[in-house]
Amino acid sequence: VTVHVNRYTYHFDNPEEAEKFAREMAKRLNMTVEIHGNTLKVE
C-alpha cells in the first residue's frame, strides 16, 4: 500500500496501518484522504 503526502511517498505492508497513517497526516495538515485502490493520497 502506498501513501502519498505532498511530494513524499510512504510504503506500508499493512493496509490498516497505511490508512491510520494517512488519516493522521491528513488531520495534522488539515487535508483529506483519497483512496484509489492500493494508493492513498493526502490532498
Rank of each mutant, 00 (worst) to 15 (best):
P15V: 14
V1C: 14
Y8F: 13
K20L: 11
D13C: 14
V42L: 12
V42P: 05
T39R: 09
H11R: 03
P15Y: 15
H36F: 12
T39W: 08
V5S: 02
F21A: 02
N30S: 07
K20M: 10
D13T: 11
K27R: 12
N38V: 03
K41N: 11
R7M: 10
E19R: 07
N6K: 08
Y8H: 14
E24H: 09
E16I: 12
T32H: 11
Y8C: 15
D13M: 08
V42H: 04
I35H: 09
N38K: 06
E17K: 07
D13K: 08
K27M: 09
N30W: 03
R28S: 07
E34Y: 13
H11L: 09
E19W: 15
E43G: 15
V1M: 11
R28K: 13
M25E: 07
D13F: 07
M31Y: 06
N38E: 05
A18P: 00
L40F: 07
T32I: 14
E17N: 06
E34A: 14
V42G: 05
A26P: 01
Y8S: 11
K27A: 12
N38H: 05
V33G: 01
E16S: 09
R23I: 10
Y10N: 01
E43C: 15
F12L: 00
V33R: 00
F21R: 00
T2S: 08
E16Y: 11
F12A: 00
M31I: 07
I35D: 03
A22Y: 02
H4F: 04
V33A: 02
V1A: 08
K27W: 04
E19D: 07
G37F: 06
E34F: 13
T39S: 12
D13P: 07
E34S: 15
T9M: 12
V5Y: 07
E43S: 14
N6S: 10
Y8L: 13
M25P: 00
L40C: 07
T9V: 14
N38S: 07
G37E: 07
V3A: 01
Y10W: 10
P15G: 08
N30G: 14
T9D: 06
N6Y: 12
A22W: 02
M31F: 06
P15T: 10
P15F: 15
E24Q: 10
E17Q: 09
K41I: 15
A26S: 05
F12D: 00
N38I: 03
M25A: 07
K41Y: 15
I35T: 07
V33S: 01
E16N: 09
V1Q: 03
R23N: 12
V1D: 01
E16T: 10
Y10S: 01
K20N: 10
T9H: 12
V5N: 03
K41F: 15
N38Q: 05
N38G: 08
V33M: 05
D13V: 08
A26H: 02
K27D: 10
M25W: 12
V42A: 03
A26T: 03
K41C: 15
Y10T: 02
F21S: 00
G37V: 05
V1L: 07
E34W: 06
N14H: 06
K27L: 11
Y8W: 13
V5T: 03
L40Q: 04
E19Q: 09
Y10L: 04
E24F: 09
T32R: 12
V5D: 03
K41M: 13
I35F: 12
H36N: 13
I35R: 14
V5A: 03
I35S: 07
P15W: 15
V33P: 02
T2P: 02
N38C: 12
H4W: 03
V33E: 01
I35C: 12
H11Q: 07
N14V: 08
V3Q: 01
K20F: 09
N38W: 01
L40R: 05
H36I: 13
H11I: 10
R28P: 01
E17V: 08
F21K: 00
M25H: 03
T2N: 06
L29N: 05
T2L: 08
H4I: 15
V33Q: 00
K20C: 15
A22H: 01
Y10D: 01
L29K: 04
H11M: 07
V42E: 05
E17C: 12
A18K: 00
M31H: 08
E17Y: 06
E43R: 14
E19H: 13
A22V: 04
T39A: 10
H11N: 06
V1S: 05
E34L: 12
A18G: 11
H36C: 14
N14M: 06
R28C: 15
E24R: 11
V5K: 02
A22C: 06
K41P: 05
R7Y: 11
T2C: 13
V3N: 02
V33C: 02
T9G: 04
E17M: 08
E43L: 15
A26G: 04
F12C: 05
V42T: 04
R7C: 15
F12K: 00
V1I: 12
K27T: 09
E24N: 09
A26N: 02
E24V: 07
K20W: 08
A26D: 02
N30A: 05
I35K: 13
K20T: 10
R28W: 09
F21T: 00
I35M: 09
R23K: 11
H4C: 14
G37T: 04
N38D: 09
P15M: 15
T9P: 06
V1F: 15
A26F: 02
H36Y: 11
E24G: 07
L40Y: 06
K27C: 14
E17R: 06
E16K: 11
T39E: 11
Y8V: 13
H36L: 11
V1H: 08
K20E: 11
T32Q: 10
T2F: 08
T2Q: 08
E34M: 13
L40W: 05
F21E: 00
K41S: 12
K20D: 08
T9I: 15
Y10A: 02
E16D: 11
H4K: 11
T2V: 12
V3F: 00
V1Y: 15
M25F: 04
A18I: 01
N6A: 08
V33D: 01
K41W: 15
H36K: 10
H11F: 13
V1P: 03
T9F: 11
E16R: 08
V5Q: 02
Y8Q: 14
G37Y: 10
Y8T: 13
G37N: 06
V1W: 15
E43K: 14
M25R: 02
E24L: 11
V42Q: 03
N14L: 07
N30R: 07
F12N: 00
T32D: 05
N14A: 06
N14P: 00
Y10I: 06
R7I: 09
F12E: 00
K20G: 06
I35Q: 09
L29Q: 04
T39G: 08
P15S: 11
M25G: 00
F21M: 02
V3D: 01
K41T: 14
T32K: 13
H4V: 14
R23L: 09
E16G: 08
P15R: 14
V3T: 01
N14F: 07
N30Y: 03
E24I: 10
V42M: 03
A26Q: 03
R28Y: 09
F21D: 00
F21W: 06
E24W: 12
N14I: 08
V33Y: 04
I35A: 09
L29I: 03
N38M: 04
Y8K: 14
A26K: 03
K27I: 10
E43Y: 14
T39C: 15
D13Q: 10
G37Q: 05
R23A: 08
K20H: 10
H4N: 05
H36M: 10
N6V: 07
N6I: 09
R23F: 12
F21C: 06
R7Q: 14
E16A: 11
H11P: 03
V5C: 13
F21Q: 00
A18T: 00
L40P: 04
D13W: 09
N14Q: 06
R23C: 15
M25N: 02
T39Y: 10
L29P: 07
M25L: 13
V3H: 01
K20I: 13
T2A: 05
R28G: 05
D13E: 10
E24T: 08
A22Q: 01
H4L: 12
H4D: 03
K27E: 10
E43A: 14
F12M: 01
A22I: 04
L40E: 05
N38F: 02
Y8E: 14
M31T: 13
L29S: 04
V42Y: 03
G37A: 04
V1K: 04
P15A: 13
N38A: 05
R7H: 14
G37P: 05
N6L: 14
T32C: 11
D13L: 08
Y10C: 09
T2H: 14
R23P: 00
A26R: 04
Y10H: 04
F12H: 00
H4T: 12
H4S: 08
M31E: 03
E43W: 11
I35V: 13
N14D: 14
A18F: 02
N38L: 05
E34T: 15
V1N: 03
M31K: 04
N38R: 05
R7G: 15
V42N: 04
P15N: 09
L40V: 14
N14C: 11
N30H: 12
K20Q: 11
N6W: 12
V1E: 01
Y10E: 02
H4M: 12
T2G: 02
E24Y: 13
R7L: 09
